[in-house]
Nucleic acid binder design. Structure first.
Lengths: 171, 171
DNA sequence: ACCTTATTTTTAATCATTTCAAATTTTTTG
DNA sequence: CAAAAAATTTGAAATGATTAAAAATAAGGT
């Protein structure tokens, strides 16, 4: 297993140290259990652990592999396929959303209920840092596309590649 | 080998029938050969054939697999690895550009020298059709990101998912 | 507690892509 | 033009992320 050049993994380790023991975020444990049941899923210990890592690291864009490696480091036994399948379950429950950061991994981020569309990402090609952009700013463009192409937009995906503040200053 | 649900392959077959015998586009044969040499590459028959398929189908977003299957159908012997490696060569020569249409394949499109940034794509989630959007319309947003985040944008990737004209009318 | 059903685990399979060694072709050079 | 050097192609095997399958285990309802 190789980590990508983005060093996301180490960023992750440093941030997620207490990732499995607390439960913050607007979702509370009882609600979560109920939410699983609403979708016809069981709220298992593995799913709780995986969801917690995600909730504890809202700024990271973790891959299945990242999460699996984290548990391995923590000596918590969860199989790879469970992580994969749980992420799919969480996606169906609209708790997480897939993000493609063009690094060969399927990554996930928490789904913010206040955004109807996916938010954008700034990807630094130098250090690999990822920054979320919350404001949409695409309404005009989307209206124009409906007018010009008769295309009804349901969702979008916008990534910017370039140099982040830090890397610009180091030049 | 399975084709994706987008049916790009059949679209491709229907469009590319004379894909290997003619040479149009602004690049002429002699120029192309020279361009390969400028980059230190040899202009082989296989590379000529592959490039021609791309030039003949400027509106398709072909994968390595698509091109390989096309040759197979045409009884032209070119190995899969040659197609893969040639596409990488063509990318380095800035003749094609990678496009990720989120269907699990690495696809390529002709690089238009008149566009400094990648153009956008409309992806119909119903029929899988892909439409290129040539106008950029992102300048304002990019200026704002430079101001707000101190992020220097080099390139971008914008995809819209939704319903195309045809599929909208069929509802 | 028991029974049904979903979930986890482990292992093996898949699928796109890459790599490798050997064979072939292209370009260079004598 | 022929031979050597270098790049390319080939076909097969390897890789790496992801998925599937069967057996073992755990949840939730009665």
């Amino acid at each position: 297993m190789k980590y990508n050049e983005l060093d996301l993994y180490y960023q992750f380790i440093n941030n997620a140290v207490q990732g499995v023991d607390t439960m913050k975020n607007e979702l509370e444990t009882s609600n979560i259990k109920e939410k699983f049941h609403q979708f016809g899923y069981k709220y298992t210990e593995q799913r709780r652990l995986i969801l917690n890592v995600l909730l504890e690291n809202p700024d990271l864009h973790l891959s299945s592999e990242d999460i699996y490696e984290y548990f391995k480091m923590k000596k918590i036994d969860i199989s790879q396929s469970t992580v994969y399948r749980t992420l799919i379950v969480l996606e169906k429950m609209k708790i997480v959303r897939k993000v493609n950061l063009d690094d060969g991994f399927t990554r996930y981020e928490l789904f913010s209920p206040d955004e109807d569309h996916a938010h954008h990402h700034l990807i630094c090609t130098e250090c690999g840092s990822i920054t979320d952009i919350k404001n949409d700013l695409l309404e005009d463009l989307e209206r124009q596309i409906l007018d010009d192409y008769d295309f009804e937009i349901k969702d979008h995906c916008l990534k910017f590649f370039g140099l982040c503040k830090k890397c610009r200053n180091q030049k």
